[in-house]
Design a protein around this nucleic acid. Sequence first.
DNA 1: CGTGTAAGGAATTCTGACACG
DNA 2: CGTGTAAGGAATTCTGACACG
Lengths: 104, 104
Amino acid sequence: MSYKHKKVITIGIVSELTGLSERQIRYYEERRLIEPERTRGGTRKFSFTDVEKLVEIANQMEDGLQTAEIRRLEQKAQQQKDAKVRDQMIRGQLNAAFPNRNKS
Amino acid sequence: MSYKHKKVITIGIVSELTGLSERQIRYYEERRLIEPERTRGGTRKFSFTDVEKLVEIANQMEDGLQTAEIRRLEQKAQQQKDAKVRDQMIRGQLNAAFPNRNKS
DNA sequence: CGTGTAAGGAATTCTGACACG
DNA sequence: CGTGTAAGGAATTCTGACACG
């Protein structure tokens, strides 16, 4: 896992990086748009990808979307990516089984 | 500036990532081996490159080096890099001035 | 020199709740 | 629904100092 995905940033810094209030960030977590980790003491830890997601969320909120809609859109997008990865893996299996076949 | 260089990590997280005590980290700052930024309130903020430096420092301390020596070594290494960049820039200027000259 | 620790205080974060719309 | 805020408490961090070696 790269630095981008390491959960190391506290909410105050995230607030500065995104321009969102801490209240907003906590609320988006409650609505399961992001999933920060926690320290033993309970302090939230975010990654840079979380920060990127939050900026994206902020834009969508500005567009008048509700959190539930944003979550659904995010899930759809994720499923598309998963499907793509699946296809790639299947292609890989086929290439391994039939090394010199024509490209499909 | 990439994520690697953004100062966003608090000392507790850095301590976990490096295995160093907060005391050690603060001391290495005092000896100017690292330069964290600060929040308005005074809380230190480190980057992933700081974390990498600290791991390097930890290794050098294990090898019996003193902080002053580590700082000198670091400065030497930095100067080498600077010199390399200077050379590259000079080469670039030359190439711009004499486009089709023989390579030197 | 490098690091642990106790001390006191300040900054940061947390949760649950009330408010507004 | 989304967000601000005051409240009380807990976790986190800060500095300067003393200790040891």
